[in-house]
Design a protein around this nucleic acid. Sequence first.
DNA 1: ACTGTCAATGGAACCGCTTCCACGGTCGCG
DNA 2: CGCGACCGTGGAAGCGGTTCCATTGACAGT
Lengths: 357, 357
Amino acid sequence: MTIADVAAHAGVGAGTVSRVLNNSPRVSPTTRARVLAAIEALDYRPNPLAQGLSRGRCQTLGVVVPFFTHASAIERLRGIVAALDGSRYDLVLFNVESPVHRDEHLATLTRRDRADGLIVMSLPPPPASIERIVRAGVPIVLVDARAPGVPTVVTDDVEGGRLATRYLVELGHERIAFIGDDHDNPLGFVAGREREQGYRETMAAAGLAVPDGYVGHAPHVRGAAREVAARILDRPDRPTAVFASSDSQALGVLEAARAAGLAVPEDLSVVGFDDIEVSGYAGLTTVRQPLYESGRLAARLLLDVLEGRAEPEPREHRLELELVERTTTSPPGGRTSVAGRGRAGGHSVRDRVSEER
Amino acid sequence: MTIADVAAHAGVGAGTVSRVLNNSPRVSPTTRARVLAAIEALDYRPNPLAQGLSRGRCQTLGVVVPFFTHASAIERLRGIVAALDGSRYDLVLFNVESPVHRDEHLATLTRRDRADGLIVMSLPPPPASIERIVRAGVPIVLVDARAPGVPTVVTDDVEGGRLATRYLVELGHERIAFIGDDHDNPLGFVAGREREQGYRETMAAAGLAVPDGYVGHAPHVRGAAREVAARILDRPDRPTAVFASSDSQALGVLEAARAAGLAVPEDLSVVGFDDIEVSGYAGLTTVRQPLYESGRLAARLLLDVLEGRAEPEPREHRLELELVERTTTSPPGGRTSVAGRGRAGGHSVRDRVSEER
DNA sequence: ACTGTCAATGGAACCGCTTCCACGGTCGCG
DNA sequence: CGCGACCGTGGAAGCGGTTCCATTGACAGT
């Protein structure tokens, strides 16, 4: 079933069939009808490979995502899928687990023949890669990562760290610990570090001490965070609150608290970051970042460029953070009065049940 | 950067470069070295579109997944990604939200030029589609769906329904309700119906009545299940246990119970199905199906065929179900003795914390 | 020394589509 | 009525690979 078959069946040339397929105006209505009939009769579909080769693009969007296993990545991907739905672009997934992996994928994606556009998540690509991709004319959008000269969709992670910490401070906590990502993670994620910076700034501004050992680092998984948290909770000057730089880690803290026989929030308040799906069930107070929305926006930006509705603009699109207050936080010692709650509520939002997924 | 450039640079013909690229033995070591040097020097990478067109395949695996938004689909996708990692196949995602959607995608996937192999999830494809795909020589594996003549990866959903119901019966429950999917869902999922069948069989075998209205149907989302559950819990002959045909729905039941002021498990036991990630946090007793593993197995089967390690065999690969006992179940009226627990434990597994994701 | 064989290689044909170019036929206009 | 413009169309070239086929040269056998 090739274009030649259709042409023969319709008694026209191959070029004409192609013009019909591509909605060229340079075809008479009569001919167009004949060709369409032939297409219908033969159940013909153009070969996307041949189209791609000939046109120099492939109707495909590449999504480079580190740790496809992370809940936040999934949430973003959902947004991307939603945005792509109805467009004529396919979605190709590139999972990245190591720097080698990353460089390999980015290298193959340097040209228009693998993907017409790129969304890179959480991963600051090496400047050299960026430069090659941009020079090759492949539009790219970074999500949750920054690089000069390319459009990005980000949140202000430092501010997020401040938001969470300030909330705990206003609740009356003074001994506030932090658990975050390792600083020297091989793929160069910076969100954890920035959230930590916000924490440190706020603590300093409030005149609160951050003793040695109040800041723990662990890989971005629950189990590791639990162990680090267990150590912190075992200190003589046990904190009354912990801010974890991701919800996964916060859940690890909750487990550690349970294991240590601590009541949450009476003995220990816990704040997370991200607001992944689980957090609602766990009743976790957290800094919500619009994960789904970030994916959707990135995909839209890319589609706008690909479909000629916009120029690529190296803008930073900043999405807002929002503190969601649930049941893992209270003033130290537990909720004492309704008034206490109102006070801290100034910057926050009560949980609205997220519905229908 | 084309093969001709490399050929010129190495002082050989294009055919020779191609042979080097494809590890043909028909190249002298000297020439091979020169070509490799040229490839290195020019940082040449073959155009996958051209390769695909020429070879008639495209190094791509298509995954057709209904409701990418469902937790169970994600879990399976994780398994697929893991299995594909290291292979030279890219993963293209086709999200399906409606029958039209489905037929459209399946139609374009009928040929080797879009995907070399297909994994279809939870979706019984129309027999005509299957036939066309098979005839076109595109290997296909169904996950969580059956069709004659193609390999499938499934679980025994009827047995799963029995497992959950029997567990409740053995705990001493007599008024057991069921909440499942709508029977006439447009995409033709059957798992919900089969689980219901297992439920009904077991109830009948135990001589227990299933009053009208004890069986509720709702779309596969939490909110809908909550409402249906609320109605059931409002009955004068309120059940002491509910078996929900998915964890998402079970979580809806838990919400309804909370809203009705019922204590779980004292006033109401709840069992789900799937064991998605959230369930561990929610403490939900559930029938675990190996979601991740099912994706991985499907991808492996496909790769084995594509890489010539196996013949396509229309076998049904059945994965085992397992009851995971957590904290949403107890004998009616609440846990009364340790002995009571041991009795029901025969078919089940205590929760092992699922770690490190 | 001559010939048959075979390994190494260059080059053409082909994969199926898009697009450019050229050509015939209308049509409008002077 | 004649000429140029332009529309509709067929066909060829090209996209960048793979693969087949033919050619060349080395080598072995007689």
